[in-house]
Amino acid sequence: MGLNLQTGSRLRPVDLAREHGLSTQAVRNYEAAGILPAAARTPHGYRTYTSLHARALRTFLALVPGHGHGTATSIMRAVNEGEDEEAFRLIDESHAQLLDDRRTLQAVERALHDLRFTQASGPEPTAGETHIGPLARRLGLRPATLRKWERAGLVSPRRDPRTGYRVYTEADVRDARLAHQLRRGGYPLEQIAPLIAQVRAAGGLEPLESALRDWHTRLSTRARAMLTGAAELEAYLRAHG
């Protein structure tokens, strides 16, 4: 059950802590971090909180799932210091990051769709392993581009111990095709490398579909959490004055 937020009611640290299953030390730490306004003290030095502190704590805990602990802390600190514009800027940055994440997910899905379409359109001219020249021609790239991708970790061909030539397996060809699709979508190498790593960790494209569904779920969960946090923050701003 939530606390009675009657204006002027005096609350102890334990009152705030119990509502959220926290320790009293955590409440004191939040105050020290600027997440809660500074508490008044009794003549004996004990902290006393009010409904404003209770609302501040609820707001912070509502902001964390959507914005992360660090950003939520900075938002609350800005509000408590009267820097509302800074709080709004931080919120805008979080929303921009969420939008970037959505665009990245969409780019990966388009790349996988294009890759599957290419694979389904007909058999590869050369089955099994291949070398840098044939692969570059197949993708319409220069060999130097594939070497650059190798340095960036996008492809990892092995070396023939007798000739020293690069040997690309079917998995390497898959990674090169996926990288090619993402590069055509305008994504830089440093953003593509972790996505290629996910494909490898998943064991191919098909298992990655489950990861993409989870990614969609996480983004939607985060978006809804941002809405919840925004509602709590608006209430706190009104109370904070």
Results as ranks from 00 to 15, higher is better:
G122P: 02
R159T: 06
Q97A: 14
L135K: 08
Q106S: 14
G122W: 01
G128A: 11
A120D: 08
A136N: 02
R102M: 02
V155L: 09
R142H: 13
V108N: 04
A96E: 15
P161I: 12
A152N: 08
E150K: 09
H113Y: 14
D92F: 01
A96I: 10
P123S: 10
F117T: 13
P161H: 04
S121L: 05
G153T: 02
L98Q: 15
R162L: 11
R89H: 08
A111V: 15
T104P: 09
P161L: 12
R137A: 11
T118G: 03
T104G: 15
R89N: 01
L105Y: 07
R147A: 11
R147H: 06
T145R: 05
D100Y: 11
L154W: 05
Q97N: 13
R137F: 14
L105H: 07
Q119H: 11
L146A: 06
G153R: 09
L146Q: 01
G140I: 07
D114F: 08
E86R: 13
I132R: 10
F117E: 13
L141G: 08
I132V: 14
G122F: 03
D101V: 01
D101I: 07
L154E: 14
T104E: 12
T118A: 00
E85R: 07
Q97H: 15
R116L: 09
K148R: 10
R142Q: 09
H95M: 02
T130W: 01
E124A: 02
G164V: 08
R151H: 03
R159F: 09
R116P: 04
L115Q: 10
E86N: 04
R158F: 10
P143T: 08
R147D: 03
R110A: 13
S156C: 10
I132P: 12
T163K: 12
L112K: 01
L135C: 06
E124I: 02
R158C: 05
F88V: 02
T145D: 04
R142I: 06
T130R: 04
D160M: 05
R151P: 05
E86D: 11
A136S: 11
S121C: 10
R102C: 09
E150T: 01
A87T: 11
G133F: 05
Q119N: 01
E150Y: 03
D114I: 05
I91Y: 01
S94D: 10
Q106I: 15
R158I: 13
G153F: 07
P123E: 03
H95A: 03
E150R: 05
L98E: 13
E86P: 05
D114C: 04
R151W: 04
T163R: 13
L139W: 06
S94P: 03
S156I: 11
L90I: 00
L139Y: 12
L90F: 00
W149F: 11
G122D: 00
P161R: 06
P143H: 14
